[in-house]
Amino acid sequence: MTMATVNETLTTARGNRRKLGRDLAGLSVILGLAVTGYLLFPNNLALLTRMTAIALLVLSLDLVTGYCGVATLGHAALFGTGAYAAGIAAVHFGITDPLLMLACGILGGVVAGLLCGAVILRAHGLPQLVLSIALIHLFHEFANKAASWTGGSDGLAGIAPDPLLGFFAFDLWGRTAYVFGIVLLAVVFTLLRLVVRSPFGMLCRGIKEDPIRIRAMGASPKVTLVKMYMISGAVAGAGGALNAISTQVVGLDSLSFTLSAESLVMLVLGGTGSLFGALTGTIVFMFFEDIVSAANPFHWLTMVGALLIAVVLFAPKGLYGTIAAVAARWREARR
């Protein structure tokens, strides 16, 4: 074995160890925060479960926007479809096992992802953004009109999931839903860490930087992006299903432009192109929103706006992105 090969093997092993370490650190942070949240806010587990569902939506958005560079303001279409798929399965087809409802939500999200991807990816830049807005309005209006299936503006009520695994009933305090959500988030986060590091993830990062170069390598950017949209749909659909299972109602707000825009704001706040950034943005935004809306019900939106302006001006890479960049510079300086 030559010296160069030995060095490369060592570099590779170090790189693998560092990535595994970051995966474990990420999981530990999720579980640590989950336990802390459970202990600090035992009477507010519904908010924490909602936060978990929205975190799945923001992670899903990060896959297409942060990793692939697709501009969208209609990503709640995937989340809402997942929520309605799980809800309709329970109310109209009697599928009340939470894991089967989750599977229905994921499937609904994948189908919505395929549909949205096929339409949105036909354009670039501003037209792409406009298409995504049109899509979310169409999804919203479709759900509104199909009232016999979706409950229309009244929402889809009467969702009564069975106990999880036959043992753990969805209690009034939301403990089962919370644990279910955290386990789901941990599993999805771990899978996504593997996906973004995989050859497919590398291909997506390449497409974000230069699709012409990717074409010159013989790969199809469009096929790759549609595939990523479907994965993203699965993640958002899982979030929607979690929301339907935990709240036992699905409203039109889950298919709204507002939710789409808010999820993008959360992503930018945390930092695009990083799963940690997506989680950071969701937690900070939702906690901040909860605290300031309770403290000042009249001007809380002004405060949220001020936070966003401050982050965009002083930490344009987002909260996590900025911290990661500072840490990287610090590591570089120590070498």
């Binding site: 995989s198 590398m202 291909l203 990062r205 012409i212 390598m217 013989g218």
Partner: peptide, 27 residues
């Protein structure tokens, strides 16, 4: 036309994987 945030090793690996039809692997 190179990916500024990727390394030379990643560029060449991606091309090798694409040649072998493995660039779409999820894991």
């Amino acid at each position: 036309r190179l990916f500024q945030d990727m390394t030379p090793a990643e560029h060449v690996a991606l091309a090798i994987l694409q040649r072998g039809g493995r660039a779409g692997r999820l894991f």
